[in-house]
Design a binder for these strands. Structure first.
Length: 246
DNA sequence: GATAATGTTAGCAT
DNA sequence: AATGCTAACATTAT
């Protein structure tokens, strides 16, 4: 389900629970659920694909992975939740996700400037991190690297490379400054389009290259390949996406 | 019913 | 020591 923008939607949906006290927590994540009982939620935050439910002195990280789902004041038909938070009048259920409790505050460990959806996101900081990478890092891996583009996923990768006319087999160290800047800027920009379209339930309708059989610019058939370390599916146009890999 | 898909990481191997 | 690869996990639509 989730790339960064989808987690922003989740964070916003849970924002009314800030200040509320957890009456009981349960599930099969294996965390110490008793820690949450009677504790007040101090903040609902997110970092990339991580949802952070914050309490005084600790926080719970929820990662929806590939198939995670959540239900607010309703329950999934089948299956037990990984995490259930029961409040006086409400209930939140998370299914099929990775849940972990951390001591301290998210500020201790998270680099907010890496989060493509954050107010603190930094283009300059992102560029600096990319420059520090090996020059032969593929742009496919780059756009899925959560320490650099926290929240970017496979859809964002595909659409951003198409929008910036960069061939997915390009290497980070071979990108001219102009293209590198465009890549960084467009990753954030598209992510906010993603958020807007996801909220309006028209995300897939606005895909230009992802899952497409034909390039919307050239009308020639798109290429499909499994690229990068993770061999993730990649759609691109061989004609209008320029290869930088000298 | 098989397949593949918006993801990550522990653990082993090099 | 650092890097790389694989298996594992879990759900749902096609």
């Amino acid at each position: 389900m989730p790339e960064g923008p989808s987690i922003v939607i989740l964070r916003e949906a849970l924002s009314p629970f800030k200040g509320k006290t957890v009456v009981e927590a349960s599930g099969y994540a294996g965390i110490d659920y008793t820690r949450l009982s009677g504790r007040r939620i101090t903040a609902i935050k997110s970092w990339g694909k991580h949802l952070l439910i914050c309490f005084s002195g600790f926080y719970v990280r929820v990662h929806l992975m590939m198939f995670g789902s959540y239900f607010i004041n309703e329950r999934k038909r089948a299956g037990n939740p990984t995490l259930r938070l029961s409040f006086a009048r409400d209930e939140v259920n998370f299914h099929t996700c990775n849940v972990k409790l951390f001591e301290g505050s998210p500020d201790d460990t998270y680099d907010w400037s890496a989060d493509i959806m954050s107010d603190e996101w930094s283009a300059a900081g992102t560029k600096k991190k990319i420059k520090a990478l090996k020059k032969n890092t593929s742009v496919c891996d780059l756009l899925l690297d959560q320490t650099i583009f926290s929240g970017s996923g496979n859809i964002i990768k595909n659409e951003v490379l198409f929008r910036t006319c960069i061939h997915p087999k390009s290497l980070s160290g071979s990108l001219p400054d102009k293209q590198l800047n465009a890549l960084i800027k467009e990753t954030r920009n598209y992510s906010f389009d993603f958020l807007k379209w996801k909220k309006a339930h028209v995300l897939a309708k606005n895909w230009q290259i992802y899952t497409k059989k034909e390039c919307p610019r050239c009308q020639i058939p798109t290429e499909v390949a499994y690229l990068g370390k993770g061999m993730r599916i990649t759609y691109f146009c061989n004609n209008c996406q320029q290869l930088y890999a000298s």
